[in-house]
């Protein structure tokens, strides 16, 4: 089965739905576990990270007086958990529009014949910490804003420096985030930071597959629920010959893929399934929904005769 084609088709479909869906009345709610940016005019759903900042800062933090908001916040949290339990990291590999944009950059780099830059394991470890810093921003800053310890312009602190806020709206013709916001010093520095982060992300993603996913707070959030997710990548270690093709083709360079262990879905894994496509040992890697195998590695069907000159 052409996993790459199926995945590509789903990525494109979700990109259109999440970027333009609102224009035809589609809205998938405010708890999507991917970068469905609310700053895109006419988008088809909202990234849960925005909701999380909003509900924590302006819902839960307001206390019992705002009981309804708390219920709404808990409701969206429940939806988020349900969506993660259902699809796991497929949100990253199959659905996230920002993931697709990074895959386009990889495609262009490959067409130009430029090599991918690899990070050392140590470098990856240090950079991986950034996602927890972002999570910290999401959880701890909103209450401080509500308590008026921090200025209100820091509202939605993560969104203010999320590269998706600048890049994704461009696909809907929204260019205002390209400019520096000179309303006051806080907005100026935040908008400058956004431009810098977006530029670094684009350059990084051009030279390194799924560069931004290294920092994405969703990977950490989804990974918390990984043991319970219905959709998952599993490995049968007794038929792995350790050829390493999985790791060499992994977008996130997951170091343990070719080792003798069953649990290979690490926090970095984005379910791109390039390992499964490349694996020459039939049935060694499987992509399963509960006990149903959706895709399995196969010696016979993996003949992607690319790259071609």
């Amino acid at each position: 089965m052409k996993i790459g084609l199926i995945r590509g088709a789903i990525q494109w479909l979700s990109f259109f739905v999440l970027t333009y869906g609102g224009r035809v009345g589609i809205h998938l709610g405010s708890a999507l576990p991917c970068f469905a940016c609310p700053f895109v005019p006419g988008c088809g759903g909202y990234c849960y990270l925005m909701g999380l900042q909003g509900y924590i800062g302006f819902g839960l933090a307001l206390g019992p007086a705002q009981g309804k908001e708390i219920l709404v916040a808990l409701g969206w949290l429940g939806v988020f958990i349900l969506l993660v339990l259902l699809l796991g990291k497929a949100w990253c590999g199959f659905i996230c529009p920002f993931g697709l944009i990074q895959d386009w950059l990889t495609f262009i780099r490959n067409k130009l014949g430029l090599r991918e830059r690899y990070l050392s394991p140590q470098g990856k470890k240090y950079l991986g910490v950034v996602k927890y810093v972002f999570l910290g921003l999401i959880v701890f800053l909103p209450p401080l804003i509500v308590a008026k310890i921090l200025p209100p312009d820091l509202y939605l602190p993560f969104c203010n420096i999320c590269p998706g806020k600048l890049i994704l709206p461009l696909f809907a013709g929204e260019t205002r985030y390209l400019a520096v916001n000179l309303d006051n010093a806080v907005t100026m520095w935040l908008s400058l930071a956004l431009i810098v982060v977006a530029a670094v992300t684009l350059v990084g993603a051009f030279f390194k597959d799924r560069f931004y996913c290294l920092f994405c707070p969703f990977l950490a959030l989804i990974h918390v629920l990984r043991p319970l997710t219905a959709l998952r990548l599993v490995k049968e270690p007794t038929s792995c010959v350790g050829c390493g093709v999985c790791r060499r083709n992994c977008q996130m360079d997951v170091a343990i893929l070719d080792q003798d262990q069953a649990q290979v879905q690490t926090i970095e894994c984005v379910d791109c399934l390039r390992c499964l496509t490349a694996c020459p040992m039939s049935g060694t890697l499987k992509y399963k929904f509960l006990s149903l195998t959706l895709f399995a590695a196969s010696r016979w069907t993996r003949l992607r005769l690319r790259p071609k000159p």
Partner: peptide, 28 residues
């Protein structure tokens, strides 16, 4: 014909790295 010939990074260094892995790690 050793396994492991799917090559995603098609730059010259990427191809060489992939081939090196295929003929070394993939060899029994």
């Amino acid at each position: 014909f050793p396994p492991g010939q799917v090559l995603e990074d098609s730059s010259l260094p990427g191809l060489l790295a992939s081939l090196a892995g295929r003929y070394h790690q993939g060899c029994l």
